[in-house]
């Protein structure tokens, strides 16, 4: 085996970050956003949606969480075109790009986790807060929007961000779809130039530094966002 080649890393930096990391971060942020929104709706359905809706939401969460993420990614990628065909009545399986497929998968998957976080958060707000909002004449939606959820997001922000860091790492699993995310980009160069050690070590270092820094940031934040009561 030849010497560790720093040059190859240096030469591929712009490809790694502008192609790969940009995809990874876009996927992470959009998935987190979609996951939090869908997760919040699921949590609300479970807590105040009537028996049928609550059972559906609970069923969804309990169905998704025990599945390995990689399986869901595969399953979605190969099934969504047929699902789309069936839904739209098209004659052939519809075309869904790798990004769209990955994004939908992560939103659907992460929503199950975010909904549990939001459920814990909503449950942590004293019941009197909802009672006071109701007594003032606010509807359920208004009291959620203006009174309960702003407090929940503040309390749960560190947990939501920590989950997003996990999501950031998990997005690397899209390599199974041959998508050029950060790991995928590193992997492509590694295979092309036969520099597996360099590229995978560098990828590991970048994931470590970014995740570790973000975690430290969350720790500092945690101390500062506590809602004064």
């Amino acid at each position: 085996m030849s010497q560790f080649d720093f040059e190859i890393i240096h030469r591929s930096l712009s490809y790694l970050f502008f192609e790969g990391m940009r995809f990874t971060l876009t996927l992470t942020l959009l998935s987190a956003l979609g996951g939090v929104i869908l997760g919040t709706l699921l949590a609300m359905a479970r807590m105040a949606g009537g028996p049928v809706l609550a059972a559906c939401a609970a069923g969804y969460v309990n169905l998704v969480r025990p599945l390995p993420l990689v399986l869901v990614i595969f399953w979605f990628y190969f099934l969504v075109p047929y699902l789309g065909q069936w839904l739209t009545g098209a004659s052939r399986p519809i075309h869904v790009g790798g990004f769209a497929s990955a994004l939908i998968t992560f939103i659907v998957f992460e929503a199950a986790y975010f909904s549990e976080i939001m459920r814990a958060g909503i449950g942590s707000i004293p019941r009197g807060q909802a009672a006071a909002a109701t007594a003032l004449g606010l509807t359920y939606r208004q009291s959620m929007r203006y009174v309960i959820l702003p407090q929940v997001f503040r309390i749960m922000l560190p947990v939501l961000l920590t989950q997003t860091i996990v999501l950031f790492q998990d997005t690397s699993l899209v390599y199974v779809l041959s998508i050029t995310d950060f790991l995928g980009a590193a992997s492509k160069i590694a295979q092309r130039d036969g520099r597996l050690v360099e590229m995978y070590s560098f990828a590991a270092l970048v994931y470590f530094i970014m995740s570790f820094t973000a975690s430290q940031g969350v720790r500092t934040l945690r101390a500062r966002v506590a809602v004064p009561r």
Partner: peptide, 12 residues
């Protein structure tokens, strides 16, 4: 109008 035992002002 309703006034509660634990005030229930919105802390945020």
């Amino acid at each position: 109008g309703m006034v509660f035992q634990h005030f229930e002002l919105f802390p945020h």
